[in-house]
């Protein structure tokens, strides 16, 4: 951090007009828009064509392709970043993404519990049961390693994929080594499974607190964290 300020110039008065606008100002037409417009047209045609091709193979594939496109589009447009939601409170003091992620947790929980409860009531297997994961030392170590990795790698799972799409070479390199890490992890999986994960509890909160109790407690916890995040930011605002 020795070279923070790379260039200093003294001028007599500040150039900036005294207003606080948040919008992108109209850019000077320096470069032609034609190459990107062409790229955009080609990409749109290719995305649609690939979707149509998948539909002929298996409609399920084209559905997932469409869902993926929507997720990528939303993540990029909102600059939604799960990494920042966990990193920024302690690093830069900002909690706006933390609060947004908590809002997502709250809304999605309510939707999921409705779907789960409906399946339970009709005696069907609970949708998403595969995501009620075992809690073991592997969760602890995995979370810790992932937390370190996502901060220095500049993005988590979804963030890395999103930034690959945005054209960041660094995130492309991250993706390669993410996949290698997963492969090494799957090779080692036997050991972890037999010695650590096997027999670890999978706790579905409704089994402990009942359906109504579980969603109520979940929303109270999310609400409390939201208030905490908000106070944290006000406390650090004068940074």
């Amino acid at each position: 951090m020795s070279e923070t300020i790379s260039e200093q110039t003294e001028i007599t008065e500040s150039k900036i007009p005294r207003r606080s606008s948040s919008r992108t100002t109209a850019r000077k037409p320096k470069k032609s828009r034609v190459p990107l417009a062409l790229a955009l047209a080609i990409v749109i045609i290719a995305l649609v064509a690939f979707g149509l091709y998948l539909a002929t193979v298996d409609p399920r594939l084209s559905l997932f392709w469409l869902i993926g496109l929507c997720f990528g589009f939303i993540l990029q447009r909102a600059r939604f970043c799960f990494t920042a939601s966990l990193r920024d409170p302690t690093l830069t003091g900002g909690t706006s993404l933390t609060k947004a992620v908590l809002i997502a947790f709250a809304i999605t929980s309510v939707g999921f519990v409705a779907i789960q409860y409906n399946a339970y009531r009709m005696g069907l297997p609970i949708p998403g049961a595969g995501y009620i994961l075992p809690i073991s030392l592997a969760t602890v170590i995995g979370g810790f390693l992932f937390g370190i990795g996502m901060v220095i790698g500049g993005g988590c799972g979804s963030g890395t994929l999103m930034r690959v799409g945005e054209g960041f070479h660094m995130n492309m390199l991250v993706l390669v080594f993410f996949i290698i890490g997963l492969l090494v992890g799957s090779y080692d999986h036997t050991w972890w499974q037999l010695n650590v994960i096997q027999g670890a509890p999978r706790v579905h909160l409704p089994d402990v607190f009942g359906w109504f109790g579980a969603i109520t407690i979940q929303l109270i916890v999310i609400g409390a964290l939201y208030i905490l995040a908000d106070r944290w930011e006000s406390r650090r605002k004068s940074l």
């Binding site: 900036i16 007009p17 005294r18 207003r19 606080s20 606008s21 948040s22 919008r23 992108t24 100002t25 850019r27 000077k28 320096k30 470069k31 990107l36 990029q76 600059r79 970043c81 920042a84 920024d88 830069t92 900002g94 706006s96 945005e166 054209g167 930011e233 605002k237 004068s238 940074l239």
Partner: peptide
């Protein structure tokens, strides 16, 4: 692309005057 959102957001929250100018593609 994320810094063009979080830097102005931070500066505005602190209370500074902020302008964001697009000077080229990304």
């Amino acid at each position: 692309s994320c810094a063009m959102k979080n830097v102005p957001e931070w500066a505005r929250k602190v209370g500074h005057n902020v302008e964001l100018e697009e000077i080229g593609d990304c």
